[in-house]
């Protein structure tokens, strides 16, 4: 992707409250570049509740509504239906939720909205734990990862919830995974989501330097290595079509390289890393990727 072609207009204001190197801020910035000004953001409790700025300021140049943790998809349904009734059906109503608000507490509302084929875009920026409250485990936390509620590592018997397939099973208009470390893929998917009609879901991996225990400079790199190692697979599914892998590295790097970049995995011994590698391999095999 030639970044010189990316439009210069910003829909985010400077001075947001994201930590240095935050993947969530960066992802929002670019998502909005694709979605444009006819976009309304509905935001449940998440890091973004803070990032968006303190009253009476705001970091967004599009309408934004903060909502309680569990309610994003339902509120967005209400907003979209209101806009439909107003005769302005071309407005993108976007839920912008973290992994806690999606995988855990918001899952029911999400499932409801997906099943009702609500005409909204649900974006989950997944930083793999409750970061805003100080790094507690969520059902998006990968096995082995340190959090403050898994001080010796997230139990290995746990598996990161397969959000893509959970949503895909509702047969939505569009479902995809993405990360801003792969800009062309990211832009294309938001473009597709924007142009589709019905329920659309994009699960984006979003690095959290404090939570992942990485240097803020390595934020984009970490997201990239997640994909290059096969820990996070970039794929999509359009309604009526099979799942499509949208990016396949020439050769997957060992998960070690991804894990050991991050402090949250640095306590893992060789065997545990091998175990994680085996699981990743199995998953990649299931996806016909290995």
């Amino acid at each position: 992707m030639d970044f010189r072609d990316v439009k210069n207009i910003e829909y985010m204001n400077q001075g947001d409250y994201a930590c240095p190197g935050c993947g969530a801020g960066l992802s929002m910035r670019h998502a909005l570049k694709v979605l444009g000004e006819k976009t309304i953001i509905v935001m449940p409790a998440s890091c973004w509740s803070i990032i968006a700025g303190v009253f009476p300021t705001t970091a967004l140049q599009v309408p934004l509504m903060h909502v309680p943790f569990a309610t994003a998809a339902a509120v967005a349904s209400g907003v979209k239906n209101a806009y439909k009734k107003k005769g302005q059906d071309d407005v993108n109503v976007v839920c912008w939720a973290g992994d806690g608000g999606t995988f855990d507490i918001g899952l029911q509302a999400l499932s409801g909205a997906a099943e009702r084929k609500e005409d909204i875009i649900y974006v989950c920026y997944d930083n793999e734990a409750y970061m805003n409250t100080g790094i507690q485990r969520s059902s998006a936390t990968p096995p082995g990862a340190w959090t403050t509620t898994t001080p010796t590592g997230n139990p290995l018997i746990y598996e990161k919830k397969d959000m893509f397939n959970i949503v895909a099973s509702h047969n939505p208009a569009y479902v995809a995974t993405a990360t801003i470390a792969y800009p062309d893929d990211f832009y294309l998917k938001f473009e597709k989501a924007k142009n589709a009609k019905g329920f659309r879901f994009i699960h984006i991996l979003s690095a959290c330097p404090p939570g992942w225990r990485i240097d803020s400079k390595d934020s984009v790199k970490a997201m990239r290595l997640a994909v290059e190692s096969g820990m996070f697979v970039l794929m999509e599914k359009e309604q009526g079509k099979p799942i499509r892998i949208t990016y396949k590295p020439e050769r997957f790097i060992p998960v070690r390289e991804y894990l050991l970049l991050q402090g949250r995995y640095r306590h893992l011994d060789k065997n545990t890393i091998n175990e994680i590698q085996i699981r990743v391999n199995e998953r990649l095999k299931d996806l016909d990727l290995s």
């Binding site: 569990a70 339902a74 509120v75 349904s77 209400g78 907003v79 029911q108 509302a109 409801g112």
Partner: peptide
């Protein structure tokens, strides 16, 4: 909706819209 929580949430969203 799929719950009262969502019922009131959707109503809230519509009202805010």
């Amino acid at each position: 909706v799929e719950s009262e929580l969502s019922a009131i949430s959707a109503a809230m969203g519509a009202s805010q819209a």
